[in-house]
Structure formats: C-alpha cells, structure tokens
Design a protein around this nucleic acid. Structure first.
Lengths: 359, 359
DNA sequence: CCAATCTGCTTAAGCGTTTTACCAAGGTTC
DNA sequence: GAACCTTGGTAAAACGCTTAAGCAGATTGG
C-alpha cells in the first residue's frame, strides 16, 4: 500500500490541508466509489484484487486513481467485523522489561506474526493477576486469533481461566494440564551442549555450579551435564556439583569451593554466575581460559559477549520461542506427541574455553 | 469483567462443551438480549453502565445474569466501528530487542496506554524502510489513536511520510521539522548529574571518557560535564576529556591514557565502557572506588548493578520515555514551547564512588 | 379529569466493509 | 428470433454494536 505518494499536480505543500482533512475524517469506501462513479461493491472488489470478479480494466483504473487521489485506507475494524476473525495475535507477558529476555520473545512473536499477516497486541501484567485478567479480556474483546501466554523465565504455570475462552499457547512456561500447547527451551539439551563444549576441548574433570532455587532449568541443566559426561564414559561425580544463588554474588562466592575440587573447567548455571566467578578467579590470580575454562548459560549478550575474555555459553532461544509460539498457535508446527515442544538451545563459543594443555 | 465464573448449577466439567461452542461462535449482544427478553439497546445500556439510562433494577439484573450465563464479551471491533475512534496506540520501534532499552520503552508505553484505556499495537521494523511503511499502514488501517515512533538510541530521524497521516510522537528521537512532537532523554542534565556525583564526593580532577561516534548523547553528556564543573568553579580542562569507542574494549583500552591524567575520578560515556575500565584498572592493581571513583551512564542493569563494586551511573529513562510519549500523544502533557520534551535522567548511586580521602 | 411529566423500554438508523444474488446489455447459437 | 451465455457491473443484506428518537403506561399537577 503505497498510497501516500503525492500524485496531484499541485505543489508539495498542498498536501498539508489535505492531510488535515483526512485526519479529521478518514476516507471511506463510499467516497471512493462516488469519486470513481461506481458502487462500493466494485471498489471493494478492486481493492481486494478478486480474480473472479469481472471488472473492466478501464473501471479498475478509475477506481485505483480515486483511491490514490483520496488517500484511501481500508478500515480494518469494519473488515474484521464482517469477516468475523481479526488479524491479531495477543501476547501477554509477565515482565516485559525486567530482562532483555521478554523483549526477545516479543521480537520473535512479532516477526513471525507479521510474516503471516497478523499484528501483535501486547500486554504486560507484571505478575499481577488482576491486570492479567483485564489484559486477556481486552484481547478477547478484540477477537484475537489467539493468545500467547509467556513468562520471563521457564517455569510451570497455571492457566488463567479466561485464557481458555481463546486459542492459546504457553510460551516459556507449561502446564500439567493435558492438551495445553506449550513451547519451552530444551534445558537438558542445553546442559548437554554446554558440557560438550568443555569435553570437546579435552576437559575431563568438569565442575557444575548449579542454582539453589528450584526450576525446570535447574533439573534440566543438571541432567544434560550428566548425560554428556556419561556419553563420554566419565562417571558422574556428585562432589563436582556445587550450588549457589544464581547471580554474580553467587558465582563469586562459589570460587573457594570450586578451587578445592581440582577441576580444569567449570560450567555455570547462568552467565551472571560466570561473571561473578570471573572476579573470584581473577582475585586468585587465575586466568581464563588457561587456568580454568568456563562456560555459562543464557547467552545474556551484554554480559557474555563483553566479559574479558568473552564467555562461551548456551543461548536461551527466546526469539525462537516467540516465533514457535506463533507458529504453534496458527497450527503451522507439527503437533507434539505429548508435553511442551522443546526448542533447541544453541551453543555460542567464545574465548573462555581453550584446548586443555596436556598436564 | 469477571464473566468466566461458572455460575450454572451444572457440574464444573460442563464448562468444556460450553467453551467450545463459544470459541466457534462468540456470544453477541443480540443473544444476550433474547436470553434476557429485552432489546439489544437495553443490553447495551446496561453493559455500558449509562447512568442516564432508565432501566429498572429488575431488568438490569436479568441482563447481567444473561451476560454471565452466556459468557458474553463485547466485540471491540464493532464498538470501534460505530464510535469511530479505536482504543489503539501504535508503537513502531527500529529494534525491539537489540538491547533491553527498547523493551523498556514498550513497557512504559504499554503501562501508560493501558492506564488510559488504550491497547498497544507494536511493530518492529529492524530499520527496514519497507517493513516500516507496511507497519504504519497496518496501524492506520486499524485506525489507531496515534503512533509512537521510537528508536533504540537517541538520534535525529526523518519522519516517514505515512506517519503524517496519523497523530504521532517521536520517542527517543527527534526531527528538525517544526511542529513534530518528540520526547528525548535530557543528556545534558544527565551529564551534569553524573559529574555532580563525583563532585559531591570531593573529587576535583575528574576525567571524562567520551564516545568517538557522533550522537546527541556525545555532545549533551560533554556539555553536562562542563556545566557541572563550571558551576563548582572548576575550570574545564580539555586534556581530561578522552575519547574511545563506546564499548567494553574502548573502556579497557582507555585505561593507560586515563592513568596519565592523574585524576581521582572518571566519568564514562556509558556503562559498558566503565565495565571495560574496571578490567583495566584491576590489571593495574587499582581498586574502585578507593584508587579511582567511576561513574557510568545508561544504567544498564545487568551490567551496572552487578559489577564489583556495583557501578554508580545515570539512568536512561526509557520507561519514562515510553510513558511520556503516550501522554504527549493523548495531549496530557504540557506542550513544549519548542523542540523535543526532555526527560530527566535520574542518578543511581551505588558503590563505585566514595568520599575522597584527604590527600 | 385532562394535560404534562416521568419511567422503562423499544425501534431503527448507521458505522465501513464484504459478498451473494441479481440484472441489463450485448453476443452466440441454431 | 428465441434461447442461451457472457460481460460488467449493482443492490442489499449482514457483521455487532451505539444511540437518538419515540412510545406506551403510570404518576402527578392543577
């Protein structure tokens, strides 16, 4: 729709009054019809490029000229009203901006929705149940095609009741309820990948600093670690798994314990812990990756890419989650046999891991 | 609207078939009217709580019961169609997720829009002009109340032509064109505040590591630095202003030069530079804040709050920008005499600055 | 007891589209 | 030249809602 060109032969600033007229009262189909000397049906047929419709080229042109001259834009509300279904997809998020994560979900959802001709309607609930109900109500009133219900960290969730009135997909969260479609990151595969990066570089004694707080990520990332070790024939050694609060302080605080383990590499539950650990190791005069190889998890760009040395890590695929959520909603994704669809967490290799020098 | 309670006297799982019926064919006003034995006008009046309308309590109750039993939701499209103006505000962003910043703008805009009964329609253009035109067209077709046009970093911008067909406000960017409303961060005040944090703690020889790349921020933050010094009667010393690429590497690389300046404090163009500088200072065995006080700019949470020690900085008020954008659009903000409205950049004091020990 | 007012509701037009059914005029066919 | 088809269009209903105008019946005023 490139109808904003100035195709009149008046000077450019003549557009100003025109514009204001338009702003006050948008041009309708009827006006176009009158201008072109045809019925509204004809204009509609031309606008929608109906192949089956029999409209002469001459009339078609008259209509198109009128559209351009008047700067006509279809009223999507009216279209929706008659067609019955809107081109909206709703996205309700519990924390739009607490982390860059939610932003990525929005981004992925928006791109994918757009690709299929849908617009994204977003609402932020800040974890507030009442706001959430209102937000969902609003979306239902706008007759959205469906709703993406997302959380900023991977967790189990309850399905709000009003959500059931619409088609919906859980994004980055899941429910035990049968039949609820959901997409989540594949934590186990991520944990496996993180560990494999270390294994690939020759490390055999690898510590894992897990989180203290329970979460699907905690279990999955540990499972992946075990799986990777076992695939290499390395017996799982419980004493190499530490736990700390999953932030910088936690990583920093775990340094002492870690050094007692006599390992050559460590896999941290997340990048923030790795960031803290960097400080701890540095204080002990140890260098990364020579004295200790480190991998993180999450790929929090601002941190991981800019630590010194840049941190090898595993990406939490938020963009993909948003996009896959939309595809699932629209039924474009293979339906899962059971449980949530698991999205791959790709490895991001940087400089915090190097081939282990022979001892 | 709490209409999803199950108020029938059938068992709870009777809700399932009901739900599916609804999904197929949403309940309309007319159906409610029939169920309640009144006209659609009456239902409409009850739904919209028109005070002036004369409806008996008994009828009112019958209608409300019918609404609840049927799970009626008004069709916002139809409402919009008749009222002529939608309750949408569009937000077009050039980079939704490149940084957490855009997320904050969305968040602020969403909250404020919501407060005034508007829903946010977002589009991400990734800097692509064609996508942008399409996105704006879509918003115009949905008859948005107005459009927020935002950029992820503060800069001058051209106003896309189609944007003019609607009410609009530039957010985090501006145009030289007269009459274009805009909201931007007050870089100069921010620079002043950053410097004042240092001055307040007794520092007098304060370096400024500015960015090499031209931007409103570069000029404004420098101006603020000068103003703050001059307000304290400290002459501006050009040799204390360094320049580096505004990222971690840049900050790290500036360490040597900085140390030649014999200063007790440094104000960095942004947090990422400060992060790099932390590394550089640490390599020289210097401690923050004892050997060098540091302040940053941007308040990029993931970095600033979690550096060791946590970094004092100045906040880029993205949330406020989004919110102020909405208020400006709705005409709730005092109109600016001229130029963009400048939003305050608040100081965030952490531990990277301490009172200067007497020499 | 008639007019005026009030109460409680309904009727119907209209918002901007889409779409089905239909129509008139001209061209073929036989 | 009647029966048919084709072409190029139009008329009108419908989508779900709001709202101004109207209309009965009850109540009040004089």
């Amino acid at each position: 729709m490139d109808s904003q060109e100035n195709n009149s032969d008046t000077p450019a600033d003549a557009a100003v009054p025109l514009r204001q007229t338009q702003r006050a009262q948008p041009v309708t189909l009827r006006q176009v019809a009158e201008a072109a000397g045809v019925s509204t049906a004809t204009v509609s047929l031309v606008v929608n490029k109906k192949k089956a419709a029999r409209i002469s080229d001459e009339t078609r042109k008259r209509v198109r000229d009128a559209i351009r001259d008047l700067g006509y834009r279809p009223n999507a509300m009216a279209q929706t009203l008659v067609s019955g279904s809107s081109r909206f997809i709703g996205l309700v998020a519990d924390a739009i901006a607490t982390t860059p994560f939610a932003g990525q979900i929005i981004h992925g959802a928006q791109d994918e929705a757009w690709k299929h001709g849908y617009a994204l309607l977003i609402a932020n609930t800040e974890g507030n149940r009442e706001l959430e109900t209102d937000a969902i109500a609003m979306m239902l009133e706008y007759k959205v095609r469906g709703i993406l219900y997302s959380t900023w960290f991977h967790r189990a969730t309850e399905i709000p009741n009003s959500l059931r009135e619409s088609d919906f997909v859980l994004v980055n969260c899941f429910s035990t309820e049968p039949g609820a479609r959901a997409v989540v990151p594949d934590e186990t595969q991520g944990g496996r990948s993180a560990t494999e990066v270390l294994l690939k570089h020759g490390h055999r004694r690898i510590a894992f600093i897990n989180a203290t707080i329970p979460a699907p990520a905690k279990d999955g990332r540990l499972r992946g670690y075990r799986e990777a070790l076992e695939a290499e024939g390395i017996p799982f050694d419980e004493s190499l798994v530490l736990e700390a609060y999953p932030d910088q302080e936690g990583g920093y605080g775990a340094t002492e314990e870690l050094l007692k383990r006599n390992v050559t590499a460590v896999y941290c539950y997340n990048d923030r812990m790795a960031m803290g650990l960097y400080d701890g190791l540095r204080e002990h005069g140890l260098s990364i990756p020579d004295d200790m190889a480190v991998v993180g998890f999450d790929n929090q760009e601002v941190i991981a890419a800019h630590l010194r040395p840049p941190l090898s890590t595993v990406s939490l695929p938020h963009y993909e989650l948003g996009a896959a959520g939309v595809r699932t909603l629209l039924g474009l994704e293979e339906p899962q046999a059971s449980g949530p669809a698991k999205i791959n967490c790709p490895t991001v290799e940087r400089d915090s891991v190097r081939v282990l020098a022979p001892a």
